[in-house]
C-alpha cells in the first residue's frame, strides 16, 4: 500500500493505494491517522477509490482512526468506496458506523454541513 495526502478547506484527505492487509504497509496508514490527531488535524477523509481491497486489519485501522478522532471531537469520513470494500462494510455492519460519500468533495462539504448544524 502507498499513502499520499493533501489538505483542502481544513480537511485532510488521505489517499491509500493498493491493498490494506496488515504488516508494515498498514502501519503507515495507522501512524498517519494518529499523527494527524496529535497535530490537531481532526477532520479527515479517506479516499478509498484506489484501494483494491482490505481485510479485517484494514477495517480495524479505519475503526481506530474513527474512534480516536471522534474522542477528540473530530471525525473520519470515507469517500469513493469501491464495490469490494462496500461489500465488506455491509457484511460486517460497519456501514452503520462510517459516513461514506460518493466523492471526496461531498465528504469535505459534509464537514461544513455538520459544523452549521
Amino acid at each position: 500500500m502507498k499513502l499520499s495526502f493533501h489538505e483542502k478547506n481544513g480537511v485532510v484527505i488521505l489517499e491509500p493505494r493498493g491493498k490494506i492487509m496488515g504488516g508494515p504497509d498498514a502501519t503507515v496508514l495507522h501512524d498517519k491517522l494518529h499523527d494527524l490527531i496529535a497535530e490537531k488535524k481532526l477532520k479527515v477523509v479517506i479516499d478509498l477509490s484506489e484501494v483494491d481491497w482490505m481485510n479485517s486489519t484494514g477495517l480495524g485501522i479505519l475503526i481506530s482512526g474513527l474512534t480516536t478522532l471522534r474522542n477528540n471531537q473530530g471525525d473520519l469520513k470515507l469517500a469513493s468506496v469501491t464495490e469490494k470494500i462496500q461489500s465488506l462494510l455491509t457484511i460486517t455492519k460497519l456501514v452503520t458506523v462510517f459516513e461514506a460519500y460518493d466523492s471526496v468533495d461531498e465528504a469535505i462539504t459534509s464537514f461544513g454541513a455538520a459544523a452549521r448544524a
Binding site: S56, I61, T67, I91
Partner: peptide, 12 residues
C-alpha cells in the same frame, strides 16, 4: 463489538 478493532477475520 462493532467498534472493536479486531475479531472480524474468521467472520469475513
Amino acid at each position: 463489538n462493532l467498534l472493536r478493532e479486531v475479531g472480524r477475520g474468521i467472520f469475513i
